[in-house]
Amino acid sequence: MPSVTSSREPAAGDRLPVLGLLALALATFLTVLTEALPAGLLPPISRDMQVPEAWIGQYVSVYALGTVLSAIPLTAATQGWRRRPLLVLAIAGFAAANSVTALSESYGLTLAARFLAGIFAGLLWALVAGYATRMAPAALRGRAMAIAMVGIPLALTVGIPAGTFVGTLFGWRLAFGLMSGLSLLAMAWLLACVPDFPGSPPERRTTLAAVARRPGVRAVLWVTLTFVLAHTILYTYVAPLLEPFGLAGRLDVVLLVFGLVALAAVWVVGALIDRRLRELTLASAGLFAVAVVVFGLGRTPEAAWAAVVIWGLGWGGAATLLQTASAQAAGEAADVAQAMLVTVWNLAMAAGGVAGGLLLDTQGAGAIPGPTLALVIVALVVAYAAKTAGFAPARSR
């Protein structure tokens, strides 16, 4: 029987449960790494599986598809489940899927495992934000979210390069095997340091429509859609965008700088979010807009470097800001709202890849900044207008 203290809400004077939040950060790190690592290992996987690289690229696509299709229905279906077993189950899904990927000789079987991993990712993303805020004192919930979400930029700046290095040097199967081992570590860490919480009783469960009608939720979803869509267009096709600046051959350094600046932005957001959610969101969108303008009008390498740094500052804290805003707007229905946000986020990523490709094919890389800027401006306007709910000043919440 769970102890009485395992599900209590923290008192306002409590400290942040750092070890538990770091366990959640490891979970988000694993989720992003599991999704994106195939992109860094396309050539060796392609040679070993004896299929074209474009087919291996679908490992990422089916993962995203699994996330989009599963986040909302799984979250709705498991509202009554206890939270920690559900979280551990999601991580166990990564361990199983990565083990199959490491051992499988069949392209079809591996594709199915990747789809399964995406399903568990949809469940995990819906859980983490609500979990982080529930573990923390009310006055520190934004900072708790920042710690839990630090796994995202760490996976992009450290995890994927390290995984690519290991996979290239020692074999791609070892890289996925190590991720399975890391998943087992995450499960043990979660069980040791993360408290359990009860699911929602039947009378407190809510529908998607009811959550969407809550003040501020739709504003957060609109900002998420436009902001992530803009970022994905720019990030996916940053290589051709850098060619006129003479930096296409230094893409690895550019992305490293972007990632490091994004990490710094996460730290800033984590320090201020509990008092300045609205201001940080507006600043984030504003910085992103400035970066896009510099990309569009700049002509020198120095201008491109400046745009990358400003872009990293604007993007780095976005996941923390948007998930915190969603959790605050949805209240006790945070898990359902997060599932909606995860679905919108992944749809925006998919649409960004398609939209950016069409722009590149039909008009060239020079056409990318214009529509991207328009999307960021929409995000900025919606966030600014959400003064009473969604992105309200701290004193109004």
Rank of each mutant, 00 (worst) to 15 (best):
A192E: 01
L321W: 10
A325S: 07
F245A: 04
G66L: 02
F94N: 03
A212D: 07
T164A: 09
M145R: 02
L111T: 12
G130N: 12
W189Y: 12
A264I: 15
F288G: 14
L127E: 02
L33H: 02
V217W: 00
V336G: 03
R134M: 03
S396H: 12
Q328R: 14
R143Y: 11
R250N: 07
R250E: 13
L375V: 05
L358N: 08
L24M: 04
A121Q: 08
L282Y: 11
F295R: 15
L287E: 10
L375P: 04
M349A: 07
W189P: 01
L282K: 08
L89T: 14
T34H: 01
I147S: 03
A330V: 07
L87Q: 01
A383S: 05
V354K: 14
L123I: 13
G216P: 02
V336C: 01
Q363P: 00
L65N: 12
L358S: 11
A192S: 10
D196C: 01
T343M: 11
L140M: 13
R214N: 03
A129P: 04
T67H: 01
E9M: 10
L185I: 06
A379Y: 05
G181S: 04
L154C: 12
A39L: 09
R395T: 12
L242E: 07
V257W: 07
P244F: 00
A113R: 06
E279D: 08
V290Y: 06
L87S: 00
W311R: 06
A307F: 03
A350V: 09
T362A: 08
V68P: 00
P73N: 04
L282C: 02
T320I: 13
A329I: 14
V376N: 13
A162E: 13
G159P: 05
S6I: 00
T34V: 15
F295C: 09
I72R: 02
G314Q: 13
W267S: 11
G171W: 09
A319V: 15
I91E: 10
L229Y: 01
A71G: 03
V166E: 00
L229I: 01
G370Y: 10
A95N: 10
L190W: 09
V88F: 06
L322Q: 13
A289T: 06
L185A: 04
R299G: 04
P17S: 00
V158S: 12
R8N: 01
F295A: 02
A291P: 03
A329F: 09
V354I: 09
V217Q: 08
A330M: 11
G270A: 04
G118L: 08
V88T: 13
A339M: 13
L69V: 05
L24N: 07
V4S: 00
L184F: 07
Q363M: 10
L41D: 05
A319L: 12
Q79W: 02
T110K: 05
L87W: 00
A92R: 15
L26V: 13
V376D: 15
R134T: 07
I160P: 11
V293K: 15
L37D: 10
A27I: 11
S104G: 02
S200N: 14
L380W: 11
V62N: 08
G356E: 07
F176V: 08
T78A: 00
D48K: 06
A248F: 06
A102G: 08
T34F: 03
A121M: 09
F288Q: 15
A77G: 05
G93R: 06
A271C: 02
M135K: 13
V60E: 06
I119A: 05
